[in-house]
């Protein structure tokens, strides 16, 4: 097996979430290993589905499995999940997305401040931000919204103190070692550093969003 194989050695908690779902959670903090483990389990559940499971939702460090409560029981499902954990497995080949974005000025009102906080000039920050491809860590916060990460340690900033009530569709947000892309008008406490014409949500098409957790995202300056 090649680089695409992932070792998931974290023993997760398998918890009931009400009477129609269970949550498989890999630890309590967001880090690369926990995120990779959640994505690997979600992939495995797509490749080898469990009878009675009607929806699989990967999140940052967990996977939700929704089931028909009239047809399934929790211990059996938990056992089936355990059978799909551990060992080395091949991840699906990640799809690659190139996101062209305008950074700073009207498109990214927080860029100058963000760069200064990281002791960079704005151009230096944009270069550093776009230097390395990121992974879609998760989807699902809002329609088409994606979290991408992780940036290197020197690019980690906390969220803003104030929450903006609404930022435009296609906003590029930055905080917590991650970059997010919005696809609907949402409130956010993250720094707004740019904007893209890319739209990851269109309810007229199926599927309504195209970026999936595990995909690779590269940012480019839209000149």
């Amino acid at each position: 097996m090649s680089d695409a194989s992932i070792e998931t050695s974290i023993r997760p908690d398998i918890l009931p979430l009400g009477d129609a779902a269970l949550l498989v959670r890999f630890g309590a903090v967001l880090d690369d290993a926990a995120n990779q483990a959640a994505l690997a389990l979600a992939q495995r559940l797509r490749d080898d589905p469990i009878a009675g499971v009607v929806e699989v939702v990967p999140s940052l460090i967990s996977v939700l499995l929704r089931y028909d409560p009239r047809a399934a029981d929790f211990p059996r499902l938990a056992g089936e999940v355990r059978l799909r954990l551990g060992g080395v497995r091949t991840a699906a080949v990640p799809r690659e997305h190139v996101i062209k974005a305008r950074f700073g000025d009207e498109a990214g009102p927080d860029l100058v401040e963000v760069a200064a906080l990281l002791q960079l000039d704005p151009q230096g920050f944009v270069d550093a931000h776009c230097a390395i491809p990121l992974r879609v860590l998760t989807t699902g916060f809002a329609p088409g919204y994606v979290y991408c990460g992780f940036h290197r340690e020197s690019l980690v900033l906390p969220r803003r103190r104030e929450v903006r009530r609404e930022v435009p569709i296609g906003s590029i947000l930055f905080a917590a070692g991650q970059t997010a892309i919005t696809a609907t008008e949402v409130p956010t406490g993250w720094h707004v550093i740019g904007r893209t014409e890319f739209r990851n949500f269109d309810p007229r098409f199926w599927p309504p969003t195209t970026m999936m957790a595990g995909d690779t995202v590269s940012f480019e300056v839209d000149a």
């Binding site: 979430l17 009400g18 129609a20 779902a21 949550l23 959670r25 309590a28 903090v29 967001l30 939702v57 999140s59 940052l60 460090i61 967990s62 939700l64 929704r66 699902g140 916060f141």
Partner: peptide, 11 residues
């Protein structure tokens, strides 16, 4: 506040 997880009705 914790790392976000999916929500379902009734939570």
């Amino acid at each position: 506040s914790l790392v976000s997880d999916p929500i379902l009705p009734g939570d």
